[in-house]
């Protein structure tokens, strides 16, 4: 029984079958990659997991509880954090403030009217934020305007923000899309480090095979909205079905 169980999920957009009979089981403390060609339904599936979309039929269970019908913030409070394809950070705020917000969210829940306390007095939270910033190698950037950082740093910050919440499941949506090779390698190293240091389950959607094969413990291949195979990386590489659907002639 995995921490995330997707059962018989279907999702149609008008006449288009985006997902049909998707089953997926993500085991605890593993890195599970979801790959597939463009239009395979990877992003649709991810959106069904975080509350942005509701599947037409089927169930999505996280840690024994259904996430269907809950809004994104409730699902986050259950312990799922999401990293976006283009980094979603608080661009107008400083790096430090970006880090504080998720930690406040974890401590105080979805809403708290703490209007007469001072941020500067929240020693414990500031310490935690500083700790995560150090883990992310960003301690020197704490006073910087988040929007003025490089793409790689923004990605790093976003991952840090998600980790600071100590989620049980981290969802990564093409974390290296549009990145230079060096930034990609840095991100891989960072994710490897995270995997090593923490008890965390990671589900990753990725195009880049280099990233997938350097991180994943388990891979699901999606094609045209249906899972083709779910297997270990070494078996996926040699699987003729996968070659045909995904890697195509170039493989």
């Amino acid at each position: 029984m995995g921490i995330l169980e997707v059962k018989n999920v279907n999702k149609n957009f008008g006449g288009l079958k985006a997902l049909s009979e998707v089953n997926l089981s993500v085991r605890e403390n593993t890195v599970h990659a979801i790959i597939g060609p463009n239009g395979a339904g990877k992003s649709t599936l991810l959106n069904c997991l975080v509350g942005k979309l509701i599947p037409d039929t089927g169930s999505v269970m996280f840690d024994g509880q259904s996430v269907l019908g809950r809004s994104p913030y409730e699902i986050n409070q259950m312990g799922i954090s999401r990293v976006f394809q283009t980094p979603e950070i608080f661009g107008d705020l400083t790096v430090m403030e970006n880090m504080l917000i998720p930690i406040f969210a974890r401590r105080d829940g979805a809403f708290r009217m703490h209007a007469f306390e001072s941020v500067a007095n929240e020693r414990e939270i500031i310490e935690q934020a500083e700790h995560v910033l150090e883990d992310m190698n960003m301690a020197d950037k704490r006073g910087m305007h988040a929007a003025s950082m490089s793409r790689g740093d923004k990605r790093r910050l976003e991952i840090g923000m998600c980790l600071s919440q100590e989620p049980r499941l981290l969802l990564l949506d093409e974390p290296t899309a549009g990145m230079a090779r060096a930034d990609t390698n840095n991100t891989i190293d960072l994710l490897k480090q995270i995997k090593q240091d923490r008890d965390i389950t990671i589900a990753i959607i990725e195009h880049d095979m280099h990233v997938v094969f350097s991180l994943a413990d388990r891979i699901t291949v999606l094609a045209q909205g249906t899972p083709l195979v779910e297997d270990d990386p070494q078996n996926i590489k040699g699987n003729p079905k996968v070659r045909e659907a995904y890697l195509g002639e170039s493989a």
């Binding site: 975080v50 809004s71 994104p72 913030y73 409730e74 986050n76 409070q77 954090s81 999401r82 976006f84 979603e88 950070i89 608080f90 661009g91 107008d92 705020l93 403030e97 504080l100 917000i101 998720p102 406040f104 969210a105 974890r106 105080d108 829940g109 979805a110 809403f111 708290r112 009217m113 703490h114 209007a115 007469f116 306390e117 001072s118 941020v119 500067a120 929240e122 923000m161 919440q165």
Partner: peptide, 28 residues
């Protein structure tokens, strides 16, 4: 001034900056 310097004030600035990130950070 107190509101501006409070966690609540910071959340309000976060709303202005990125509501999507707010929602996916567990904040309503």
């Amino acid at each position: 001034i107190r509101i501006f310097r409070s966690p609540f004030g910071m959340m309000l600035r976060a709303v202005k900056s990125n509501q999507q990130r707010m929602n996916y950070t567990g904040l309503n």
